[in-house]
Design a protein around this nucleic acid. Structure first.
Lengths: 179, 179
DNA sequence: CATAATGGCCGAATTGAGTTCCGCATCAAT
DNA sequence: ATTGATGCGGAACTCAATTCGGCCATTATG
């Protein structure tokens, strides 16, 4: 059957809607991915094999990108967290800039809309290491300036949550949007 | 033995240095926590029971805070990522502000040093939902203004890495710090 | 409208991994 | 030098992951 080949090639997301049970599964596995399929099934109202089948599908479809250990930054000597805004001449996403990915201190790289071009989330051992990274950034052609926000305290830090807020409490003084 | 009780009560981090092997284990488990202890042991040069023992210790000590499923934001209808800077009157960390933790769209809350007070990482379904969250923030007493950085593209996003950069390539034009 | 086909679930059985136990080697302290 | 503690490896045991076959519901089809 050629159709099967087409299915495989077409897309990495084989278009399977995540239903309510899938969301519950994701919610459980985000909290703790070490539980048995027996318990997972029990929590979402499914038999162990059915739960297993669901999880397999979620992994195949890419909804579950990975299951990984979450490390305490202090345990690996990285107590300093900072967000670095970068302004560049021209278009910021140069290969030279992307090269900072090789530093394990860099956890996120985004291009953003706003009064800055790019945004980095970095975690270092101390201010010295942060300075080293900033120096490395300033050496990158095109980088005109950076602004760093050093985190004093983290009150919440969690992975992507499967739930969404259905209704936002609309303040009275706001007009209802047309669209 | 009273000593044992003391050990338990004293600290959640029983002061066990993470050595080189532990770091290798963490590196493997950050990438993929689903592998068997047999393979984990093989990759770090340990027998399966020894690897298991190490992992148990890393979990007990809190170095491994959790092992969780990493979800593709698109799969759960959250394609919009934004960083929100919040300026407040007085000290920002009020219980009213912390209440936004209840929204699953909010992934991170930090207090930062810089030209702003607090920093939020939020992930929403669309701009409408982001607006709803911002409206909710402006309704919070003490909040004077917010600045949002909407992410256009994410080029890197990964959990805490166990490795650290030992030597930062020092640019020539920088003086050597005294400390 | 009836019927075939698909997809998802459950229960039972098998395979494989997680886990425990015990002896040994290494290192530190007495 | 001896003793104690700690971490490792090999083998055995227990439990969970995985597979299989049959059932039911829903959807497509003649």
């Amino acid at each position: 059957m050629d159709a099967e080949t087409d299915d495989i090639q077409r897309n990495k997301h084989p278009a399977r809607e995540v239903d309510a049970i899938d969301r519950k599964i994701l919610g459980v596995l985000v909290e703790d991915a070490t539980i048995s399929y027996a318990e997972l099934g029990e929590r979402v109202g499914l038999s162990p094999p059915a739960a297993h089948e669901r999880v397999k599908r979620l992994k195949r479809s890419g909804a579950i990108r990975a299951t990984s250990a979450i490390i305490d930054p202090r345990a690996v000597k990285k107590p300093l967290l900072a967000f670095v805004h970068i302004d560049t001449r021209g278009w910021g996403k140069t290969p030279e800039l992307m090269a900072v990915s090789k530093f394990p201190e860099v956890e996120e790289i985004h291009t953003v809309a706003g009064d800055t071009c790019m945004l980095l989330k970095v975690r270092t051992e101390d201010t010295r290491a942060l300075e080293g990274l900033l120096a490395r950034l300033y050496d990158t052609p095109g980088v005109t300036s950076t602004r760093s926000y050093v985190v004093l305290s983290t009150y919440l830090e969690r992975p992507v949550q499967p739930e969404t807020t259905a209704e936002w409490p609309a303040p009275k003084h706001m007009a209802t949007p047309v669209y």
